[in-house]
Design a protein around this nucleic acid. Structure first.
Lengths: 176, 176
DNA sequence: GTTCCAATTGGAT
DNA sequence: GATCCAATTGGAA
């Protein structure tokens, strides 16, 4: 029978150190100081509202470029997406699933920052690759003409759900 | 020197009981089971997109009706609001400040439900009058043509900020 | 099984 | 000082 903390450890992809003077766990590595700046920089790249286009030969055009970071998804899969009918939250989840493994989604957070109510209590999760996330964020925001803050919220929820799904699976496998 | 828990007690407007077997605090009263249903019912009232109008004499028209719940604000104050320039989050805060005292905003939550991460740890706050909140919610959602879920988020943040402001004031007064 | 939601928090803006 | 934000959680839809 695994405890909740045991499951968190399984879902940890980093090394941790336990300080003697505090009964809390800290990351060895540094938090991503430029997490927010990355958003702003990506936004600035897009400020002329230019849509990034591909200037490659036909044979190389089977990938659709999502943003300025160079993130692509297979054209065949992309064209299957019905953005008109899909809610932007589902678009976010679909694109995240295309560019990241379930494992990555379950073990990373959008910013790499600790949860404010659990600073020094819960281990901070590493940041999901900001380039791919940034491209997805801006692609969805542009597609739906909504503020990136809404997309960010959808990403956060999607990652939280991915983690919970993984947790349930671990718990189930453990009890078997 | 007041502790964080002392401040929470000052901000509590309900009676609490402490169970012997748990080191946690519970409300004596019941949680609002129909919190979500109230939203849905309000939404249904509006589903014909009818804008509630006043059919009173001029002398009684110095109040603007916000929604079907009968919540009104002084017309003189309402007409000062520049919704075109104001973000919906600010509109939410402004209307909340018109219809509730700082004390109410600092001591109540939107749903009356406990925070999931703090169930049995932090005392549940009573629900802010759902009629007035519902009228504000729908008025803003309609004005900005946005989903009520965004307005709900803005309300939640506004209440959290009101509480923090109050907390800082209590701490300051205590240290004086 | 998947998706959505709100309360809490510290910090950033 | 006021406003905005994201990580965490349990439960609802």
């Amino acid at each position: 029978m695994m405890s909740a903390m045991d499951i968190d450890k399984v879902l940890s992809v980093h090394n941790y150190t336990k300080k003697d003077s505090f009964d809390t766990i800290y990351h060895v590595d540094k938090p991503p100081e430029k997490a927010v700046n990355i958003y702003e920089e990506s936004k600035m790249m897009f400020q002329d509202n230019s849509v990034p286009t591909f200037s490659m030969t036909t044979s190389e055009c089977d990938e659709v470029l999502l943003g300025t970071g160079g993130t692509t998804v297979p054209r065949s899969e992309y064209e299957k997406l019905d953005f008109e009918r899909m809610k932007y939250t589902i678009a976010v989840r679909t694109l995240l699933n295309m560019k990241f493994t379930r494992e990555e989604l379950a073990t990373h957070s959008q910013t790499g920052k600790a949860s404010p109510p659990f600073i020094g209590v819960k281990a901070r999760k590493p940041q999901l690759d900001p380039v791919r996330v940034g491209d997805i964020r801006l692609h969805v925001a542009q597609k739906y003409n909504i503020d990136t803050s809404f997309v960010n919220k959808a990403i956060t929820v999607a990652l939280a759900d991915a983690r919970k799904t993984k947790k349930r699976k671990i718990k189930k496998d453990d009890s078997d």
